[in-house]
C-alpha cells in the first residue's frame, strides 16, 4: 500500500490535542529509572500486613505457594528447578510497583492506594532478601535497588538465517 507521495499531507488534522490533565490520568507507567513513581513511600513491615490481607490467598503465606504462584524465592528440594519469582527472575524493582498498581489484586485491580503499593513493593523486596527490614522504598530509592536477576537478562540478538539459537 503506497500513497503517492505528492498527495500525503504533513498532517491529516484528525484527532485533537491531549491536555496534560488527561495524559496525567492515564500516564501510570513506571520506568526502571524511576520516572513515573509517585510521591509517598513504603516499608516491609506495613506491606506484610497488607499482603496477608489482600494477596496471600492467591500467592501463599509469605508469598510462597498459593494457587497463583510464588512471588518469593525459596529452595524447594522436591522441585527440579526453583520457581521463577521476583527474587530470582525479575530484573528491575520498579516493575513490581508498576505491575501491582495496574493489575493487582487480580480480583480488584486498581483498588490499591499508592502508599499500599509502596508498602507491598517494600515487603516483596524484603521477603526476597533484596532489601533489609528497615529499608524505605520511595521514588528515590526504588530505582537504585539492584535485582539479582538483572545481570542474567540479555536482548534477543538473532537475525534470522539458518542459526538455531
Amino acid at each position: 500500500y503506497l500513497i503517492k507521495s505528492d498527495s500525503i499531507p504533513a498532517r491529516f488534522g484528525f484527532g485533537r490535542v491531549a491536555t496534560s490533565t488527561e495524559i496525567a490520568r492515564l500516564d501510570i507507567d513506571i520506568r526502571p529509572d524511576g520516572k513515573g513513581l509517585p510521591a509517598g513511600e513504603g516499608k516491609p513491615v506495613a506491606g506484610k500486613v497488607i499482603f496477608a490481607q489482600k494477596c496471600a490467598a492467591c500467592h501463599g503465606v509469605g508469598g510462597v505457594g498459593g494457587p497463583n504462584g510464588s512471588l518469593v524465592t525459596t529452595t524447594d528440594p522436591t522441585k527440579k528447578r526453583p520457581e521463577k519469582t521476583i527474587g530470582n527472575y525479575w530484573p528491575y524493582a520498579t516493575t513490581i510497583f508498576d505491575y501491582i498498581r495496574r493489575a493487582m489484586p487480580f480480583s480488584e485491580p486498581g483498588s490499591l492506594t499508592d502508599a499500599e503499593v509502596y508498602n507491598l513493593t517494600a515487603y516483596l523486596l524484603n521477603a526476597n532478601g533484596i532489601i533489609d527490614d528497615k529499608a524505605v522504598v520511595n521514588a528515590k530509592t526504588l530505582p537504585n535497588v539492584v535485582m539479582p536477576a538483572q545481570q542474567l537478562f540479555v536482548p534477543d540478538d538473532r537475525k534470522g538465517g539458518p542459526e538455531i539459537k
Binding site: D29, I30, R31, P32, D33, K84, I86, Y89, W90, P91, Y92, T94, T95, D98, Y99, A103, F153
Partner: peptide, 11 residues
C-alpha cells in the same frame, strides 16, 4: 527513549 521493562517483558 528506553524500554519500560514491564512485567510482560521480564517475568
Amino acid at each position: 527513549d528506553a524500554p519500560w521493562q514491564t512485567r510482560e517483558e521480564t517475568s
